[in-house]
Design a protein around this nucleic acid. Structure first.
Lengths: 225, 225
DNA sequence: GGTACCCCATGCGTATTCTGATCATCGAGG
DNA sequence: CCTCGATGATCAGAATACGCATGGGGTACC
């Protein structure tokens, strides 16, 4: 599960993050409301833990804002304010759960997982991202630095494979097997041709090339050399 | 919202039901686990309040059972047991929230509504809209730019599916499964034909085409591109 | 018995993919 | 530092696969 923590208390945030990571989740942290709101709106999470009192933008405001934007990511509000009225306010603002500090980590974990359970009846990944290159698998669109890139079917599959293995060297055999479903060597420069066309579209108009040749081995998709 | 209360204490149950009804909800009550389980599995609710200690079938067992049956109705567990470990157990069993008695009714209401919000945001839609194309599912009518479009049943289902997945690429397999309920490939151009006919009606007389072919992948319904 | 709807087959036009030829680059070894 | 073989890049034409429109036959429901 991808979880976002918005909490200004460094120590509390680190503690939470550590625990959630140990439980096998992928955690992002924001130390103030502004950063939190930015991450919440630009990234996709399965659940969020939001502290109620925050410097910058207030916790409740964050929740109201993302709900207003149509984002339905489950939110657990964390607060020192434990009066019934405070809790009701937190839930009314669009929170899905409300936990009062101090809390037991085991309970927070159980609650977060209960929240995530329903939505993250985990659909497979829908978007891939490498540097400023983004691929939306559902819409079948690719953008780099916000600019649309339009690819042919095979190029799309090829790029998808490269992105799923970003940072690793991908051999020609791997590509033949997984992108072409050839279980033999066609003895042509098939792959080179497609890499070339992909480069034209993905790297040509940009400063930083992402597709790199690894002589004698294959190709790799990553930022620098 | 339709809410089911499973609680053996007559007085508590009546009090709860009264409050929820005053808040505008539709409430069913069960006084023991057996009846509760029966209602939970045979009726459809937006949320359930389940007491943990019940004569007959125990509260946690009820939750586990309905979850095991694939029912994802949000459940709030109510209990006198307030230790962290009890709460964790309740959530682990498949509960979505856990409230300890005695509780303030305002909080229970807020939590129940928070639970319901998530799913009931997905109450059956009655109209779909994509750009200037509108579909009324109840009246079974489609208009584009105010102008009536008259579709055959299959065309209607096809368009409905496309509209529900607007912006995403819809594959032939998805269409066969969901519009035709074929679980095999008919090896004909069935889909192409229907798309073609649909285009005649939906796109032909308008400037901006909405149905786009994504070669090698499927079709998509969206504005430009 | 008629009508509306749905499915299938055909042939055509075009986008996409693959091939082979040619050109460029890399790096080891003299 | 230069040469040469090996490896990779690019290009354009050929081959192919894919999607589209259309008409006809079948079927189910009035």
């Amino acid at each position: 599960m991808r979880i976002l923590i918005i909490e200004d208390d460094q120590e509390a945030s680190a503690y939470l993050a550590k625990g959630l990571k140990e439980a096998g989740h992928n955690v992002d942290q924001a130390g103030n409301g502004t950063d939190g709101l930015f991450l919440a709106t630009t990234e996709r999470y399965d659940a969020m833990v939001v502290d109620r009192m925050l410097p910058g933008v207030d916790g409740l405001t964050i929740v109201q804002t993302i709900r207003g934007a149509g984002n339905t990511t489950p939110v657990l509000i964390l607060s020192a304010l434990g009066k019934v009225d405070d809790r009701v306010k937190g839930l009314k603002a669009g929170g899905d759960d409300y936990l009062v500090k101090p809390y037991a980590f085991a309970e927070l974990l159980a609650r977060i997982e209960a929240l995530g359970r329903r939505t993250s009846a985990s659909q497979p990944e829908t978007r891939l991202k490498v540097e400023d290159l983004e691929m939306d698998l559902l819409a079948r669109t690719v953008t780099r630095n916000g600019q649309d890139i339009d690819l042919q079917p095979r190029e799309f599959r090829l790029l998808e494979y490269l992105m799923r293995h970003a940072g690793q060297v991908v051999t020609r055999t791997m590509l033949l097997e997984n992108v072409w479903e050839y279980h033999f060597d066609p003895q042509t420069n098939l792959i080179d041709v497609h890499i070339s066309r992909l480069r034209q579209k993905v790297d040509k108009d940009f400063d930083q090339p992402l597709i790199h040749t690894v002589r004698g081995a294959g190709y790799t998709l990553r930022a620098q050399r």
